[in-house]
């Protein structure tokens, strides 16, 4: 089996504000192997996005954050050596966001932002070379006139175009791990589907590992090799995509699947709030143990 590029083991996370302490993650474990596409599915507030933040070592130093457990990204411990992770941001580990248009600075041209992205991790690069590489990267995400896109401001491009720009930026430095946090959720469904397919093609052909964070089951089904279902800070079910969709075992997963809207699969369906069965322990499908564990 390939080495994991991301390993999370027994991760606890709590936010403390004054005397209040809110526990957000109650000991989750997951892993993403090199070149593998793994989805983390759950409703909002279940702890999906903070997991990505922790993997980028972006949360650990914030005041009032208490993180415990292991997060290892490309062999480095994100809690003990956040500086090592910080140095990998933007080239070895990259990220794609919900709303591409607001993730691009409105007062800079795409080209200026791209140049910074290409220089992530302190890589030296001349402006001409950066420009050439940015144009090539935009051509790869099928942007019709890369030179013009580079000279544009984000508000001059459509949401779909900006998402392509974002994908190009995320992959430009050949990352080993891509964190996709609800990519394109802010876009309309068809554009989201188009850009996701584009992203899928590119990461598959390059062998980039992806942690795909989503609430949208139908998108996950199309995209992921393996799925973790998270509910209120606990992983409740873990299996390969076909296992999970053909044989959902955990009550929460069943409820999620049963409630999925039939048409195109839009937003998150209403679920019976806090049904007791949702607190059932983790169910793992055959052959999906965490590394270091014995398969049951």
């Amino acid at each position: 089996m390939a080495d994991p590029v991301l390993t999370v083991r027994d991760l606890h996370l709590a936010f403390r504000k004054g005397r209040q302490r809110t526990e957000v993650l109650h000991g989750i474990s997951l892993h993403v192997n090199a070149g593998e596409k793994v989805a983390l599915v759950g409703e909002s507030g279940s702890g999906k996005s903070v997991t990505a933040q922790l993997a980028l070592a972006r949360l650990q130093q914030e005041k009032g954050t208490e993180a415990e457990g292991l997060i290892e990204v490309l062999g480095h411990d994100a809690t003990r050596s956040p500086a090592r992770i910080a140095a990998m941001r933007g080239h070895r580990v990259t990220m794609i966001f919900q709303d591409p248009t607001s993730a691009l600075n409105p007062v800079f041209r795409i080209g200026e932002i791209f140049e910074q992205v290409l220089r992530a991790g302190g890589q030296r690069l001349r402006a001409q070379e950066a420009r050439r590489r940015a144009e090539a990267a935009l051509a790869e995400v099928q942007i019709p006139d890369p030179a013009r896109a580079l000279d544009s401001y984000p508000f001059q491009l459509s949401g779909g175009m900006n998402q392509r720009v974002m994908i190009a930026m995320a992959l430009a430095n050949g990352p080993e791990l891509l964190l996709a946090d609800e990519p394109g959720t802010a876009l309309d469904v068809t554009v989201q589907a188009q850009t996701l397919r584009l992203m899928d093609d590119l990461v598959t052909s390059r062998g980039t590992a992806v942690l795909f964070i989503s609430h949208n089951l139908s998108v996950v089904r199309e995209f992921a090799d393996r799925v973790y279902v998270i509910y209120r800070g606990r992983i409740v079910e873990h299996g390969r995509t076909e296992q999970l969709f053909s044989d959902p075992r955990h009550p929460y997963t069943k409820a999620l699947l049963a409630a999925a809207p039939r048409l195109l699969g839009g937003g998150l369906p209403d679920l019976p709030q806090g049904a007791e069965a949702f607190a059932d322990p983790l169910l793992v499908h055959d052959g999906c143990a965490e590394p270091g564990e014995v398969t049951a």
Partner: peptide, 10 residues
Amino acid sequence: PYIEMARAYG
């Protein structure tokens, strides 16, 4: 979000 992006991209 664009500052979050900037930080995520080092």
